[in-house]
């Protein structure tokens, strides 16, 4: 269901930004079906909302028309298919979809599900794992977000550039 639509996305132009927003919305729906309501929430807000707005404002700052590349794509196609083949080979050993006895389901997850509410008093296990059991992880992720914000600020704030140009003209004047 996701695949069929994803193929359409290879059209050029600004429409891809809208298509990727649609793609995110579909992903969010898929996450609900897969019982990941928290993730679906984040994906709907982030992917369908913020990313699209950022993409469109970036396109408004640059050119929105794509020049078609002239080189042939055969090598890339062969490479992609070869990688897919390797992945299909690797995947054939993995446990079936929805298997409750899969190794991923048996390691720490039952401990979280049984004890999380008792230990933290919070019914949403995702929140308690996020903030308590794996708090250090989340701290790291938050640092990444902060760093990205600072990076964008440094790259994009017009003031920085203006000040530097100002200084250059001052130096020229003297």
């Amino acid at each position: 269901m996701v695949v069929a639509f994803a193929i359409i996305r290879r059209r050029s132009l600004i429409a891809t930004a809208m298509l990727s927003s649609f793609f995110s919305l579909l992903m969010a729906g898929t996450f609900v079906l897969l019982d990941a309501v928290d993730v679906a929430f984040a994906e709907a807000a982030v992917g369908a909302g913020i990313t699209t707005v950022l993409m469109l404002s970036a396109l408004a700052l640059t050119s929105s028309v794509e020049v078609q590349p002239l080189k042939s794509n055969w090598l890339a196609l062969v490479l992609t298919i070869a990688t897919a083949g390797v992945l299909f080979y690797g995947v054939s050993d993995l446990p079936a979809f929805g298997d409750a006895a899969a190794p991923a389901q048996r390691h720490v997850a039952p401990r979280y599900l049984e004890m999380a509410e008792f230990e933290t008093g919070i019914p949403n296990v995702v929140t308690s794992v996020l903030a308590s059991y794996r708090g250090f992880d989340t701290f790291g992720e938050l640092t990444v977000v902060l760093t990205a914000g600072i990076g964008v600020m440094l790259l994009m704030t017009p003031g920085v550039r203006r000040r530097r140009n100002q200084k250059e003209t001052d130096e020229d004047a003297t």
Partner: peptide, 19 residues
């Protein structure tokens, strides 16, 4: 804590209002 949601989602939605 008791339903879907949390700091990450709330932050993004809050920002969406400003955007």
């Amino acid at each position: 804590e008791s339903g879907p949601g949390g700091g990450f989602q709330a932050g993004v939605i809050f920002a969406a209002a400003f955007i």
